Every structure is written in structure tokens, then in C-alpha cells.
Computed example of a mutant assay.
Amino acid sequence: MAIVLLVPIAWVVVAPDPGRIVGALLVASAAGWSLATRLWASWATPPTVDDALRGYLAVGCAIVVTALWLDRHRHPIIRRPWLGLALVGVACAAVVVLPAVCNASIPGRDALLPLLKGVVIVAEDAGCESRGSCERSFQLTADDGADPQEVARRLTRHLEDRGWRGVEHEAKACRPLGYLANPYRTCVSILHLRGPGTVEVLFNVFNPREPRISYASETP
């Protein structure tokens, strides 16, 4: 992750003569983050990789801010390179701004609503099937008697207008739900149905890094 380099780069830019002690502390904190991520952090639900990253940034910012404060008489902070100070500010802000990643969330209704004219909802369901996977489904039909293929075409255009690309019949269009330490992805698919609804639009939020349990078939 490039954000890991933000703290040491900020220190190199902001300090005219980077001290060895501060540099050693930053190297040690980066090594600690790497070790913690390797041995204890997990991408599985709920992910803890973001906690390790947030802790590393907090420690790094504390080291840099403390060093700047202790050296303020020899090198006043207001005379430090503005780019370095900006990088320090971004790194420290990331500690608060970096979103906490928890369990998978149920997709909101606003993923599809408001609907385009002429299409109505006949059924709706939402819930979490398993750890790290939640979904919301809409069964829809047209109030003008259009066939399922036409309803699917209308919904495809509607979803494309909302930023989804590549939505086709029985095919998923997916995109990341977040960045950095957020492993979740969100997908949408359109399915033809039989029954009260002619078309189903399915939204899914899942963790692709969630370990799946596989059962080996027993041979007689």
C-alpha cells in the first residue's frame, strides 16, 4: 500500500536534516506494521487489516509530530517546507478519515431507487446469507405490459445511468465498495423470472477474501 510510505516520505521532506533516531523509529514502526499484518491481521470478515494500518499511521504521526515539536526552537515549524507539512497533515488525517471496516452491509434501496417510469416493484427481499455476504433483491415488472426482455433492457439502461457498466442478463457487474484496507466488492445482476415479477435485480455485497469452507466428497 502506497499510503504506508506517506509518513517516512513526509518526514524526509519536512526535515532539512532528518535525524537518525527518528528515522530508526519510523523504520521500526513500519517493520512492526508489516509483521502485525503478516502474522495477525486478516482480510476475513470482519477485516482487521485496516486496524493495523490505522495503528501504524497513528504511531508514525506521533513520532513525526513529537520530533517537530522538540526541534521547534532550532527549526521553527512555520519555516518547514510546506509540502512536508502537508504530507504530515494528510498522514495524520488518514488516521481519522480511514473508514473502519466491519461486517458486510446490506445494500441500500437507493442502489436502484428511484425507479424509472413504467417499472414497478412487486416484491423485495434483503438479508445476509453467510459471513461476509449480504444482498438485496427486487422483483419488478412493467405497468405497460412490456415483456421481460424489454423490462431487462430498461433496467440495464437505468443501472448504466447510475454508474454500472457491463450489466447483462445473468451476468454480474462488480466494482470495489471501498479502497485501501476495505476488501468488499458490490455487484449487480439482472435475472428473468417466472411468477409475479418478470425480472429480478440482485445487489450483492461480499468479501472475496473470505475463506470458504469446502467439503471433500467421501469415496466409498
Rank of each mutant, 00 (worst) to 15 (best):
A93F: 07
V4H: 07
T37R: 11
L177W: 02
L115P: 14
D17R: 15
A94F: 04
T141E: 03
R80N: 13
N207T: 03
P81A: 12
A181L: 03
S214A: 12
L116A: 12
P114D: 13
R209L: 11
L57R: 05
D71L: 09
V120C: 03
K172G: 02
I106A: 10
S189M: 05
C92I: 06
L25K: 08
A62R: 08
G23L: 12
L98G: 07
C134W: 04
R72K: 05
G89K: 13
G197A: 15
A142I: 11
A86L: 15
V49T: 11
N103G: 12
I3Y: 04
I190L: 11
L180H: 10
P99K: 11
A10S: 03
I3V: 15
C174N: 06
W69Y: 07
R20K: 14
P220D: 15
K117P: 05
P8Q: 01
T198L: 15
L87K: 08
A24C: 00
Y179I: 14
V120Q: 08
V65F: 10
L87A: 08
L140I: 07
S137W: 03
L87C: 09
R80S: 11
I21R: 15
A58E: 00
N182Q: 09
H169A: 09
W43L: 09
I121L: 06
